[in-house]
């Protein structure tokens, strides 16, 4: 770890001096209401794939969050573990472009293991040219603990870089994340229109500054913004703001 990347962690929870950035509205009315207006830039946000088959949906959701937080001339760094590319496929430039990202302003770091993912992501947070970093380890990487996420948070605040931690194949653990999302692909209802657009069953498990919630969210690739899904598919009612219920849900899903 860099010398400059070892802040005094004891002073952290009270609030860290950093850039005051405007929240980036997601475009989904109910979610924005819960998030006090939008996604907090310069913070750590976690996106968990709810089950084995949700990896691609979680990737899309993480990218969507990063794009919402990304200011125009800034770059996006995507750090992914090699195993992730074997399981889910490599990040594909044409797919990025179709999704609404600009592939010519995306850097891809192929990290051999989870340690390298963390290290590479932390390195990126020292670079003012980046607007967002997607950090994608595989499995229950033990080095992504509370301390590591606090360090990420400190570095993220310092330069106003949004960090999206994209996790596959593991259950949420305590962290310094501003928000934590659990993503499933949304099943189609028989009379749905727009059957091909990215649609997420997104559960906001943790929200540092507001209530939790669960919504069907559509991603509008043309305009780069979320929409309320006009789906007939039923969203199971979300009870309470405690993290316990969805966690149970997660365990059942495997």
């Amino acid at each position: 770890m860099n010398a400059s990347f070892k802040p005094n962690l004891k002073t952290l929870p009270g609030g860290v001096p950093g850039l005051a950035l405007a929240r980036a509205p997601l475009g989904h009315v109910a979610a924005d209401a819960c998030l006090c207006g939008g996604l907090l830039p310069g913070a750590v946000h976690e996106v968990f794939a709810a089950m084995a088959g949700a990896g691609a949906a979680a990737s899309g959701f993480a990218l969507a969050l990063a794009l919402r937080a990304l200011a125009k001339p800034k770059w996006l760094l995507w750090v992914r573990q090699d195993f992730s590319a074997l399981e889910l496929g490599e990040i594909h430039a044409d797919g990025l472009h179709d999704f609404g990202a600009d592939p010519s302003r995306v850097l891809l770091l192929r990290a051999p293991d989870a340690n390298a993912v963390l290290r590479g992501g932390a390195d990126g947070l020292g670079c003012k040219g980046l607007g967002a970093v997607i950090v994608e380890p595989w499995g229950s990487a033990p080095m992504f603990n509370l301390t590591a996420s606090r360090r990420l948070l400190l570095a993220a605040r310092q330069h106003g870089i949004t960090v999206i931690v994209l996790r596959h194949g593991c259950a949420p653990a305590p962290s310094a994340a501003e928000t934590r999302w659990l993503i499933r692909p949304a099943p189609l209802a028989p009379d749905d229109e727009d059957r091909g657009i990215p649609r997420f069953d997104a559960a906001l498990l943790r929200n540092r500054h507001g209530p939790a919630g669960r919504w069907m969210m559509d991603w509008d690739c043309n305009n780069g913004i979320f929409r309320t899904a006009h789906s007939r598919a039923s969203v199971p009612p979300f009870t309470g703001r405690s993290v316990e219920a969805p966690l149970e849900d997660l365990r059942q899903a495997g």
Binding site: G55, A56, S59, G60, L63, A85, L88, G89, E90, I91, H92, A93, D94, G95, L96, H97, D98, F99, D102, P103, S104, R105, D194, G196, I197, P198, D220, C221, N222
Partner: peptide, 25 residues
């Protein structure tokens, strides 16, 4: 050096992506 494009817009008219975000090697 970075190349600005051209990236072919493969999206359908309703905004449906036609290329996958993740492609197997």
């Amino acid at each position: 050096e970075p190349v600005a494009g051209p990236w072919r817009v493969e999206r359908d008219s309703d905004g449906t992506p036609s290329r996958p975000l993740r492609l197997f090697a």
